[in-house]
Nucleic acid binder design. Structure first.
Lengths: 211, 211
DNA sequence: TTAATGGCTTAGAATTTCTAATTCATGACG
DNA sequence: CGTCATGAATTAGAAATTCTAAGCCATTAA
């Protein structure tokens, strides 16, 4: 029996937006721009012929239809998610969701991490982020910054260095202790080292930054 | 809580292929070419890191992993499908306008579809038609034929078989992808199956037709 | 040995999806 | 009131994905 299905990516966009009641935050979760989410949801509404959200100037409200739809979709996605985990334990070698600071992203190659051999099998495309709370909350797995910041309880290592307007600056990798040194982290770190070609000397550097 | 989801279109391709145990027939259901389905599934297997099918020279076999995965996915898709119908009734309350080929109409009961219980609440009385362009243009919703025809971008499935002068022939149902599997289509198909009393097996003989 | 079948592969085309930039409406605040 | 900041809507064009078409291969059947 074949299924009648609306556009699946639109559903995913809707599900995330509805959980956050925000295209903006949904976009961050999905790793795309808010405009993309807005378009996906709009397209979904178009094919369904109903409105799922009421758009407010500062956010979203679910319509009645939307709130009837959401839990079902969440359930379906949860089934997919769980059964996928069960079926492909290889995914526990899952890709890490990485955050990169605005500043640092200017120094990364245009379509990093795609440009690094094999790196995309270890990390997803990064979102813009500065906040280690995102790591604590599990929203992202790791964070790359140009400054050392206050990260009690999190691993925070200088992993490479770049030259910014004549002065050397370190790249710091923030992640949970448990993730430090896992294969994905190692792949990430060594790709950064390669990219910026000069491995960081070991003990000196890490401390010339403010919090 | 965000979901870690594999490529959704790949999942749909896998689910259809697994039901049919054939990329070729799945492709018809999905309205694309077999190559496209093959690619989607392969890509899915790649991101999962496991094989879902064993490819035989003449068809497919589910791997252990694949057969554990299939029922869960079917369940998820069914949830999506049902909740979508519930949520967008505008799309589902409408009777489908059906076309039937001259040839086939000779084999249908005299006052079909009136003779089939409940079918008239799902489809209107059919017009005579052969041309899938009418489906593309939206002039009709579905087309019943005795031959497989070229229908790029449309679903085209063998749904029942009749005996025509000693030889078995299939009845093909052409409709837009979006309409495949909707409640009306299901009602139509199952009434045909009932009428001609011999359900069509899924992968085997539905395919000895050329386009 | 020949024909047919169904999956695989590949380049390039077609389509979808995304980004980046701008616009708009609202609410907060001095 | 102005001025800002926020978040959604809307574009054109770029980027990425997905599809087709055509040829290949191994297998089966006649």
């Amino acid at each position: 029996m074949s299924h009648r299905l609306p556009p699946l990516n639109g559903l995913r966009a809707f599900e995330a937006s509805a959980r956050h009641l925000s295209f903006k935050t949904a976009a961050r979760e999905l790793g795309v721009t808010p405009g993309a989410v807005s378009q996906q949801v709009k397209n979904l509404e178009g094919t369904l012929g109903v409105n799922l959200f009421r758009r407010l100037p500062r956010g979203l409200l679910l319509t009645e239809v939307g709130s009837a739809y959401l839990p079902e979709l969440s359930r379906a996605f949860r089934i997919i998610s769980k059964s996928t985990e069960a079926v492909a334990p290889a995914l526990t070698n899952r890709k890490l969701q990485i955050g990169v600071s605005e500043k640092l992203s200017q120094y990364l190659p245009a379509n990093w991490p795609k440009c690094c051999v094999d790196l995309l099998s270890h990390v997803t495309r990064p979102i813009k982020a500065n906040d280690p709370e995102l790591v604590r909350s599990g929203e992202i797995d790791g964070l790359l910054l140009l400054e050392r910041i206050h990260t009690r309880g999190l691993s925070n290592e200088a992993v490479a260095s770049i030259c910014d307007q004549g002065t050397d600056r370190n790249i710091f990798f923030v992640c949970s202790i448990g993730l430090a040194g896992c294969s994905q982290s190692r792949a990430l770190v060594s790709s950064l080292v390669d990219t910026f070609s000069e491995p960081v000397a070991n003990a000196s550097f890490a401390d010339n930054e403010r919090d």
